[in-house]
């Protein structure tokens, strides 16, 4: 089973790198599922949201997809990236006070770090207004590049640049806002 899954992942990734958008969506969907299963087994403490790590890993896979060498197995590459991002996330959350720390009442009084939505939404806030409207249009509203260009009165190339820079900026700020 695993061999077959590996083959399918590899074929989807190759098609995606050649510019097949539909294959890329299928690839990222499959990776998201793999990551969820893997992370649920690994993450035991409550403050860390598995979906945050899934999203951060997908962003990293996208921006670092040139580090995969065709012919190499895809899964070890994916999990190495995921592990790197998971360790990062645990380290960040390690800075939060633990529930059994002695100054619990004090901390509760301070209302430290009430998680508001997902980390990606906080990262979105640091984008330039132009980048944010492009990223939101393409992701949440599900518009195509062409529709986004028309709605925002921008050139298509400008939309593509804003999308790419916006995603890179989100990846950079993820969890650090």
């Amino acid at each position: 089973m695993e061999k077959g899954e590996e083959r399918i992942l590899e074929q989807m990734l190759i098609a995606a790198i050649e510019g097949d958008e539909r294959a890329y969506v299928a690839f990222l969907d499959a990776v998201a599922k793999l990551l969820r299963t893997w992370l649920r087994r690994k993450v035991r403490h409550g403050t860390l949201d598995v979906e945050d790590v899934v999203q951060e890993t997908l962003l990293a896979i996208h921006l670092k997809r040139h580090t995969w060498r065709s012919g190499e197995p895809v899964r070890p590459w994916i999990f190495a990236i995921a592990n790197h991002k998971l360790i990062d996330a645990i380290r960040r959350h390690g800075r939060l006070p633990l529930a059994d720390s002695p100054a619990l009442e004090e901390i509760e009084a301070m209302q430290v770090e009430v998680p508001q939505g997902w980390e990606i939404d906080r990262a979105l806030e640091v984008l330039t207004p132009g980048q944010r409207s492009v990223v939101t249009a393409v992701s949440i509203e599900g518009s195509s590049i062409q529709e986004t260009a028309r709605d925002l009165g921008m050139k298509e190339t400008a939309v593509r640049v804003a999308l790419h820079r916006g995603l890179a900026a989100i990846a950079k700020r993820f969890g650090r806002t």
């Binding site: 995606a16 958008e21 539909r22 890329y24 969506v25 990222l28 969907d29 998201a32 979906e51 899934v54 999203q55 997908l58 962003l59 996208h62 997902w118 990606i120 939404d121 979105l124 990223v135 393409v138 992701s139 949440i140 599900g142 195509s144 590049i145 593509r160 999308l163 790419h164 995603l167």
Partner: peptide, 13 residues
């Protein structure tokens, strides 16, 4: 942003 929404943005890039 939901994960499937993020995937749309990544694939469009």
């Amino acid at each position: 942003m939901e994960t499937n929404e993020l995937i749309k943005a990544l694939a469009a890039d």
